[in-house]
Amino acid sequence: MGIATDHLPGVVEQLPGGSVLVTSFDSVINWARANSLWPLAFGTSCCAIEMLMATGGPRHDLARFGAEVARPSPRQADLLILAGTIVKRMAPRLRLLYEQMAEPRYVIATGACTISGGPFIYNSYSTVRGADEVIPVDVYVPGCPPRPESFFHGLLTLQKLIKTESIRQPGVRHKPVLSELPDGIKVEDIQKEIVALLEGEATVDVNKAAQAKPWPKGT
């Protein structure tokens, strides 16, 4: 046949109506979707300033990941970034914003308040205990507030998650439980190292440590 089946690896599937579809379109579409996330910033408290606005600025630079086109309208956005406490009065409005977004749509919840209610979980008459009581959340970024780097890790996790999608099953994603480890390192190695650290001597003898490593001469 033509270039589409000779050069693109993929499975040719019959569709109703007699046409064919190359499933490696999945990877092309996912690549495009993952690298041009247009965020709608739902910043309601301190996380919005400390994390969201900081990531948009030139020092941390959200544009490196293709997500800098912040949309103030839900109809043009496909990523909803929740940054801040959600209260009962606001929850129906948040739900409305989410439902106005075109599919495929993704949600990142950042910060303790957004994930669980945070410090306002007890004795509060108004705080919603977690954004996932209102809308489905794809990626949680913990912190109070999270560092911009944590947010980027969350964004990259979402990109990985998008790359597991298929146009045959819209909306179905295989959620990664662990980021990919570098070559030659296993989870058991990390666990062993952490156990050794925890079980080792917790306090350091400063004098002993200083004598073991004397000042270099000439200082």
């Binding site: 009962k88 979980i121 007890y122 004795n123 509060s124 008459y125 205990r129």
Partner: peptide
């Protein structure tokens, strides 16, 4: 003030 929604701090 009390209502059904509030959680008491343990």
């Amino acid at each position: 003030y009390e209502d059904d929604f509030m959680l008491e701090r343990p």
